[in-house]
Design a protein around this nucleic acid. Structure first.
Length: 358
DNA sequence: TACCAGTCGTTCGCGTAGAG
DNA sequence: CTCTACGCGAACGACTGGTA
């Protein structure tokens, strides 16, 4: 049976509990609601205090809540259109909802998110959360067989193509701000196998300048952050063998150029056009793709995220230790990684030097 | 130890801000 | 007004850890 419609709804610009308003919205109002108020309501109905419920709602990252919201909205819309009340919810209705999503052309991954969202709503049928209901499980297997998740790429581009292009972008002091930005972003991505998320989190506040390296300490939650997990530092070391690929030099130049432009933010990466605001992950991704394209790599096939596999694959080829690769890339599950890279690794040269060495 | 439910970040496409 | 870089929403793939 479906949980009741919520009685607690945030005001649009809510951010704190004090802005909570109490009223009795219908399903329609639910659709307009832009957060997890239904889930909050479920907690509160169980006698959990508002403060406790707020903490529990933080168990999901912002991105997960945002993603669930889409399917929660669709779910309520579906119920409203068919005039289905909470007491009528059955497994057939849930399956019908999922089928409609399928018929709308959604893939396995998206429908799987819809399933998780319904579970998060606390929808229980036959004493199990709908996500784990045997018929839903059966349905999902069917969706998977019909529209399997396609793994991105089997192969990966050659890092040396990008290095060749980056070498042309020198000397750094003669480059435009745009060029320095692109070069810097790509060099950090390559030498640390970072996600764009990590690049966005780099802040001049948590930057430490040593004699021949910059170290960024990340005190934020990364994708892989869990209790007991310590974020790896992002280290940008000088690369004496080839000044043109020296991320340390490029960063020094970038900081020099952007110091006066970075007014309202501590974020390292800011837009190279006025008003030079802090950029989002979308923009950083786009920057990386620009470099890939200019290096002659097909960007229809390879996205910004492919830098991770390109860098780690090359590191593996040059016998960087598995532990070093995993720590750099932020992979915590040895088995997952070993599935793809299960060759015996001989010695343990450092990650960044091997990625840059040709 | 293999699988899978659940979680989280990235990508794509499109509307839009804002500089020139 | 035009042009281009930006950022948001929807959809998707990457990844994990519990469990059978």
């Amino acid at each position: 049976m479906l949980i009741d419609t919520p009685i607690l709804v945030y005001s649009k610009e809510r951010s704190t509990d004090s802005s909570l308003q109490r009223h009795c919205p219908s399903i329609e109002q639910n659709i307009e609601s832009n957060d997890m108020s239904c889930i909050r309501k479920q907690f509160i109905d169980r006698g959990i205090s508002t403060k406790t419920a707020s903490i529990m709602l933080c168990s999901w990252r912002k991105s997960t809540k945002k993603q669930y919201k889409v399917f929660v909205k669709k779910w309520f819309s579906y119920c409203r259109e068919r005039k289905i009340s909470e007491v009528q919810i059955s497994i057939n209705i849930v399956l019908d909802y999922l089928t409609i999503l399928y018929e709308n052309g959604l893939g396995y991954s998206s429908i799987n998110t819809a399933r998780s969202a319904l579970s998060a709503l606390g929808l229980v049928i036959d004493n199990v959360l709908v996500g784990a209901h045997p018929l839903v499980v059966r349905f999902m297997k069917g969706v998977y067989n019909l529209r399997p998740t396609k793994s991105k790429n089997i192969c990966v581009w050659d890092v040396s193509l990008v290095l060749n292009y980056l070498r042309k972008l020198s000397p750094v002091n003669m480059l435009t701000l745009q060029e320095v930005t692109l070069k810097l972003v790509m060099l950090i991505a390559l030498t640390n196998a970072t996600r764009v998320q990590t690049l966005k989190f780099l802040s001049v506040d948590c930057m430490e300048k040593l004699r021949d390296e910059f170290v960024f300490h990340l005190d934020v939650l990364l994708k892989q952050s869990r209790p007991g997990y310590k974020n790896p530092d992002v280290k940008l070391r000088a690369f004496p063998p080839d000044r043109r690929l020296c991320v340390y030099t490029v960063l020094k130049e970038y900081i020099k150029r952007t110091e006066i432009l970075r007014v309202h933010t501590k974020q390292l990466l800011i837009s190279y056009i006025k008003p030079h605001k802090a950029v989002t992950c979308s923009t950083i991704s786009r920057w990386i793709k620009v470099v890939l394209q200019k290096s002659g790599i097909d960007t229809r096939q390879f996205s910004a995220h492919s830098v991770r596999s390109a860098a780690t694959s090359k590191a593996k080829l040059y016998n960087v230790s598995l532990a070093d690769i995993m720590s750099k890339a932020g992979w915590t599950n040895v088995n997952t990684f070993a599935t793809f890279y299960n060759k015996r690794i001989i010695n343990s040269n450092s990650f960044d030097v091997n990625v840059l060495n040709n």
